[in-house]
Amino acid sequence: MTSTIATKSQALPPGIYCPVISLYQITSRQEIDLVASYKFFSYLIRGGVDGLVLAGTTAEAVLLSSEERKELVKTARKAATDLGRPDFPVVTGISGQSTNESIRLAEDAPAAGANFGLLLPPNYWAKAVTKDVLLGFYREVADATTLPIVIYSFPAMCNGIDMNSDTLSELAHHPNIVGVKLTCGNAGKVTRLTREYKHGQFGVYAGSSDWLIPCLAGGGGGCVTGIANVFPKCVARLYALWNEGKVKEASELQGLVAQAEKACKEGIAPTKFGAAHFAGPPAGITDEKAFWPRKPYAPCGEEKASWVVKVMRHLVEVEQGLPDAV
């Protein structure tokens, strides 16, 4: 049954969102490199993504300070404004293990330039996270801020905490909870939620682009995908082909994108290496060390790096053949 809840006052626009990797200075402390970040944000926007997601899993959010998060949002907003896109959607992670910490991060975000907050469930003591705890957590954070909240469902990163479609549906009724990113990969949640809610009431997004067409076919609004760090034009083109009704061409490109994205499934280091190798030079960032994960985590070894190049390189010609969006 279609819900009669009101359309959200600030719905998350449909489209392709890039969960942007964090770039670091080449020093022993790996301070955030805001100059390189500005170049990379600009590159992604020109590549045609519809929004940026900062301080998420791909950004190594748990390794970032609250001040670094704010500076990255400010830099992303400046990059968008300088490209003539002052209203470009910027989503930032506000996930804390406590309600208080999540509220504090949500309070910081709008002044820095964020439009939306992406929020994982609490998960430190997984056995204590009941449905009532989940509902109370999201509602209390959403009550405490004007920042519209996007639920982030990622059981693999949350001690197995998974929110079923009934729980998500209950949260959709909150006027300040505007959508969900499904990194759980559950297409059934897409079709159940989109049967009940229109996009403006509660947007539903795939958590990767290797099932973008299934998500869109089920009524979803797009995806948040790590491969957009490497080939933003390809993912934007895939989304455009589907919306233009070019199903055969979209399906062919979907397969190519899915093959490349399997490298991103291997973790942050392979994703960052792929971005350094393929996207770094055209973005104006030529030192691969800027893309290394933050310590104590290590960059790809030679064998893994060679494999990443092998599984991604088929998209190079496609990416280079597509025009800039800005």
Rank of each mutant, 00 (worst) to 15 (best):
I16V: 15
S22P: 08
S9W: 05
Y17C: 11
G56F: 03
I5C: 13
I285G: 04
C184W: 03
F137P: 04
A275P: 07
L63H: 10
V62S: 08
I151T: 01
L193C: 03
E261P: 13
F41G: 05
A305H: 02
E252H: 10
V318I: 13
A80R: 13
P121S: 12
S37V: 04
Q97D: 14
F116K: 08
L119W: 11
S102K: 11
L216G: 06
S208Q: 07
H314D: 07
A80H: 13
C158V: 13
K310P: 00
L315T: 02
A61C: 14
V235E: 04
Y17E: 10
T57D: 08
E60C: 12
H314N: 02
A260F: 09
K198S: 03
K198G: 06
Q30A: 05
G56C: 05
V53D: 02
L212V: 05
V90G: 12
D87Q: 15
G117I: 14
T225L: 03
D210A: 03
D162C: 05
Q10L: 13
V129N: 03
Y124W: 10
Q320F: 00
P148C: 00
P110F: 08
L118H: 08
Y138L: 00
S95V: 14
C300G: 05
E140H: 02
S42P: 04
L64M: 15
T167F: 08
T191V: 15
G51Q: 10
K233T: 05
L23C: 03
D287A: 10
I285K: 07
